[in-house]
């Protein structure tokens, strides 16, 4: 078995170098396409983070005073329930608000430490039936005057713009990435096919003396997987780079609009693993196709 293992490694290595230019082309294509995939996943994460309070159609939030009485709170709740313009709403008590707060500011623990649940305002997250600016404005004016209400915040146009723009960019990146991934798979397929052609005499002899089918296939499969893996390595570097850029933008006061565009380490790790798995899959897919189509063992 030891002999087999070092045979496999040797063969895969020789193949990669024999075909250097095509190998580099495949690796670069994988790298570029997966960078786009990783970038768009991160963008999606960061926009979700930035607009966390505004998901699921929530268009405005009624913040209560932290010291508002239960009766005041009940009155607002009743009014929301009765209003025909409100589709549904959700109540965030102080504990839940604190959890969300910790989430939003997890990269700056000193802020989280300075806050306790009882100073945070409980709130109603409201989904209106009609999302037009006039409706929201009229609802706002009703609730802002209620006793115990601290303020009513409506989803800003800027948030909507960010959301729409990021959706657009995300879809665009994914489409381009999709085509590039297809190109990468085909390039890997072709480089494996070239490798098999270069070694056709050896393959013929191997079949003749009774090398098992997998023994012949595996070095070629490994070659494809390796190309995918190296390509995804580059892409993971890019993913970490994008996180840096987001952090820098977030820290820069001039771009306050984007201050929420941060991704946490967990999300970067998830994205990296996703990118790596995709790279390996592409390599395996391209080489598996080449092997099954052209090796005939």
């Amino acid at each position: 078995m030891a002999l087999k293992l070092d045979y496999m490694v040797r063969e895969t290595g020789t193949n990669l170098f024999r075909n250097l230019s095509l190998t580099i082309a495949s690796i670069l294509t994988v790298a570029v396409s997966l960078s786009l995939v990783g970038g768009s996943v991160l963008l999606r994460y960061s926009v979700d983070n930035a607009t966390q309070q505004w998901q699921g159609g929530i268009e405005f939030i009624v913040f209560m005073q932290p010291e508002a009485t239960q009766a005041q709170s009940d009155a607002v709740e009743r009014q929301l329930t009765e209003s025909t313009q409100v589709e549904r709403f959700e109540y965030f008590d102080q504990e839940r608000t604190f959890e969300e707060f910790k989430d939003l500011f997890q990269n700056t623990p000193q802020i989280v430490e300075s806050v306790t649940p009882d100073i945070l305002p409980p709130s109603f997250r409201v989904v209106p039936v009609d999302k037009s600016a006039e409706t929201i404005e009229s609802l706002r004016s009703v609730f802002v005057t209620q006793p115990g209400v601290r303020e009513v915040v409506a989803a800003f146009d800027s948030i909507r713009t960010i959301r729409n723009l990021s959706n657009l960019i995300g879809v665009g990146l994914m489409v381009v990435a999709g085509f590039l991934l297809l190109a990468a798979t085909l390039l890997i397929l072709n480089s494996i096919r070239m490798a098999m052609f270069a070694r056709r005499r050896e393959i013929e002899v191997m079949k003749l003396v009774g090398a098992s089918n997998w023994f012949i296939r595996i070095p070629f499969m490994l070659e494809g997987v390796f190309q995918g893996l190296i390509g995804s390595g580059f892409a993971i570097g890019v993913v970490f780079g994008v996180q840096r850029v987001f952090d820098n933008i977030a820290a820069d006061q001039r771009f306050s609009l984007f201050s929420g565009l941060v991704v946490d380490n967990q999300q970067v790790m998830t994205t990296s693993v996703f990118v790596m798995v995709t790279g390996v899959l592409i390599g395996a897919l391209g080489s598996a196709f080449a092997v099954s189509r052209f090796l005939d063992v």
Partner: peptide, 11 residues
């Protein structure tokens, strides 16, 4: 040797 190696014969 190739004929033996590829059928997994020990060194």
């Amino acid at each position: 040797a190739f004929a033996l190696e590829v059928i997994g014969r020990p060194k």
